[in-house]
Design a protein around this nucleic acid. Structure first.
Lengths: 129, 129
DNA sequence: CCTTGACCTTCTGGTGACTGGAACCTTTAT
DNA sequence: ATAAAGGTTCCAGTCACCAGAAGGTCAAGG
């Protein structure tokens, strides 16, 4: 099938699929006219990568997970290790975002938000340490 | 003062300060030898930007907040609006990360993580929709 | 006076994961 | 024959920097 149909089936933009080919995540066949020709296996791989990306895995992790997925002699421990590392990164990002959120929310709550110039948000940002 | 001292005072890497000059966030004087010469006001501006960046504001927001900070006729409503928009983006990111976290945590908990190939993580990633 | 080392300068190129657009070719339908 | 809808490649841009190269400047010590 052509790239458009593969895009429809996977939900990935065609541009993204071309990019995935460029970096070697998938290697679709080529038809005589030069068009990419995706088989079911290629589409399935794209779906796999799409799902992994939705869970926030980076391209490097996707590559590793894909290799594991295709290796019938894999150890689930290897998969789990990648996932756990990623989970830790997610948790760390959440913590950092929640800290920002708490600080910012307090500041926004304090701010009158009217026509006057006094603003605790700016005061806080401009404080000298 | 030279860029090194400005970096020490603000905690920003010198490279970052040069970048901030390049994009017009700060415009330090130049000494006769071509070195950047930061006055207290310039350092204070850098501190302001540094704080805003720590709260996750993008460079565009920093530019706007900086302009508001320096405008004595500002309305705090304008500052508050920027902050509220940014808060909404933070909340959205947190929600999205927490969804990933929940899914991934459940998968990791289900996975034996041993030498066998069976792995619910890979099964889930490879599921056809 | 010379050297050493720390500091400064600019410039180029890379990061992650795409996205947009231009210029062009192929297929399908009218 | 033509027009629309698809496909192709390649170049450039995004964001907020960071790494490194090649070279200029300055203060201190021999």
């Amino acid at each position: 099938m052509n790239i458009g149909e593969a895009a429809r089936r996977t939900g990935l933009p065609a541009k993204t699929i071309r990019y995935y080919e460029e970096i070697g995540l998938v290697t679709p066949d080529r038809a005589a006219n030069g068009y990419r020709d995706f088989g079911d296996a290629a589409v399935h791989k794209l779906e796999f990568v799409s799902h992994a990306r939705m869970l926030g895995f980076g391209i490097g992790d996707c590559r590793d997970l894909l290799a594991l997925w295709e290796d019938n002699n894999r150890a689930s421990a290897d998969v789990r290790a990648i996932a756990k590392t990623h989970l830790a990164e997610i948790s760390s990002k959440i913590r950092s975002l929640m800290a920002m959120q708490a600080t910012l929310r307090a500041l926004v709550d304090e701010c009158a938000g009217d026509g006057r110039p006094d603003c605790p948000i700016l005061s806080q940002l401009g404080r000298k340490d």
